[in-house]
Design a protein around this nucleic acid. Structure first.
Lengths: 338, 338
DNA sequence: CTGAAAGCGCTTACAG
DNA sequence: CTGAAAGCGCTTACAG
């Protein structure tokens, strides 16, 4: 690979002039610039990223920390990865994807060695053991998800509470008085997946206010347990008129389960859920749903992070941002006669 | 962050001594080493990755090129990502994940700027437009998948031909004479997904040799088209005794489809497929299958790549490696009476 | 409008 | 067993 020195020599200028031509940080005469450009093209010169990082203290790389849980429905993860990666590229950043089982250690490793300018943390839990590392590291970070303590950190997540209220209100407006809620599997709660209770509790609460009984259950993460659990839950509540599903694995399996039971939606049962547009497409789900907007979350997380990297002062104090969910009516909720 | 100079000063030695203590590339007295180790721990020193890369011309990062196709069943992709990432970490490498729509340009970018020491290419097509870039770049690469022209490149893939023969032979051994094959969707062929014909053609051929009629069809990538296509295909061949599925979306939907038709496997129909163990678990699939071994492919691709990075001479000429598939009998093929 | 020089933080021959 | 120095390839004050 040619270096900036090769370009300079061949163009008959100094290395600094080539550098400034590249960065545009000072004015260069038309002819010099043209000559430099020509030589760069001839030689196929690309600046060495490591050297540039060393000189500028900027790597133009963001760390993306993922955790794969063996007991989880896999398609969920991917929904964040692509939007994050694309948003980063648009802003000139590459993505260092880190999947170490020891996330806290990995953060220190990529942070202290200055491999990245910032970090995006996925799949954040209530008591996430990675947060201390994150705070100990020079680089700013953005969490996707909501931990118990967000001190010194930026976080962004869907407003699950608002999502729950929207759904319950939609059901109330259509005359429903008894509904069943299927949350993510219980092990997600144990792991500290706060979105479980941040959705469930307001759903129950808002139901109470509106005179709706909400029977809350945990779902399963995989077939065939998913199917049998739904059967069991529906068997237990024959008078419920609607099913609220906050669990990807369950909703993906639902069409088959309902067909088995001879249930037609919304004639025999109303269904509302919470999933992303991508997910709905992937599994061709016909249900009214609050959109979890993984792409919006991913994109905004990156925007936030880059903003804080480039202009920490202007980024202001650390904060939690909640993304307002949008209910997309696909007609799977029946209007009951008073 | 403290630098190697800070450590040296505090330990009362030269920077080179600290460096050698870190790398172990020359012997250091017991006391000096202990002193250095203590100071490193005290200061929390971690070498700067950019500086090290500049000095050694090694970044200890591998590029992983992914392509997301909007028309594809998403869970497939993820199966490779984790094994690649874990294998890389075990060997001391991090992963730069690149999802640019313009893969060829991205390869040049991360290659020419020396951001990576090597590249793993996923989702390789027959006429992959990224291969020219790959050849133009200094770094070695390993493809997962098989292009038409592998000149100057290492590639690794499942031996789809052997997989097809194993399956057909398994059916033949159990007395089947007429079977239906569902391949991936036709757009995968158009995109140059050679694994489609590398499986289908030998299946048909081996069938001919063994006196088995193989009716070959393309599947769909999503519900509900997946389901209706299976119904249509089965309707067309009432006398077929077995179904061979080489399509993730189809096999994931199959349990529901067969239940709809009142078909019990293997009583009424035998089913054999081709998928990974992870996939089988994710969707709880009970079918006899040749395992596509995404984890083995990912791991061996990384091993190969790192081998070629560290010792190009010993790595020998570029080659294509085929991974021998293993048929895992789950009892979904019925033995027919002669 | 441009250049010479210092510096970023490492590694590694060269010397002793 | 250890150190002084050069060098990796950039950027950016400092000077003119």
């Amino acid at each position: 690979m040619p270096t900036i020195g090769d370009v300079a020599r061949r163009a008959g200028v100094s290395r600094s002039t080539v550098s400034y031509a590249l960065s545009g940080k000072r004015t260069i005469s038309r002819e010099t610039r043209d000559r430099i450009d020509r030589v760069i093209a001839e030689l196929g010169f690309t600046p060495n990223a490591g050297a540039r990082a060393l000189a500028t203290s900027q790597t133009m790389v963001l760390g993306l920390l993922l955790q794969f849980h063996a007991d989880e429905f896999a398609p969920a993860m991917l929904q964040y990865v692509l939007p994050v990666s694309e948003a980063a590229r648009r802003l000139g950043y590459d993505i260092l994807m880190v999947t170490d089982a020891n996330g806290a250690g990995a953060i220190r490793r990529i942070g202290d060695s200055e491999m990245v300018d910032g970090i995006v943390l996925l799949d954040v839990t209530h008591d996430d053991p990675r947060l201390d590392s994150l705070r100990s590291v020079r680089q700013p970070a953005v969490l996707i998800g909501l931990p118990g303590d967000t001190r010194d950190l930026d976080a962004i997540d869907l407003d699950f509470s608002a999502a729950a209220r929207q759904i319950v209100e939609h059901l109330a407006a259509n005359g429903h008085r008894e509904v069943v809620l299927i949350s993510p599997p219980h092990h997600v709660v144990e792991r500290g997946g706060s979105y479980v209770w941040r959705f469930r509790d307001p759903a129950v609460e808002r139901g109470r206010e509106l005179g709706i009984r909400v029977h809350a259950y945990y779902g399963e993460s995989r077939p065939p347990a998913v199917q049998t659990s739904v059967h069991r839950i529906l068997d237990a509540h024959p008078s419920a008129t609607a099913l609220v599903v906050h669990n990807d694995a369950t909703i993906a399996a639902l069409p088959a389960v309902l067909r088995d039971r001879g249930i037609v939606v919304p004639r025999d049962l109303s269904v509302v859920s919470l999933y992303s547009r991508d997910f709905a497409e992937e599994f061709s789900l016909p249900y009214t749903a609050v959109e979890s907007a993984a792409d919006t979350l991913g994109r905004r997380a990156v925007d936030l992070l880059v903003h804080r990297i480039l202009d920490p002062a202007k980024a202001g104090p650390h904060a939690v941002q909640f993304v307002e969910p949008v209910l997309r009516d696909r007609g799977s909720v029946r209007t009951l006669q008073g």
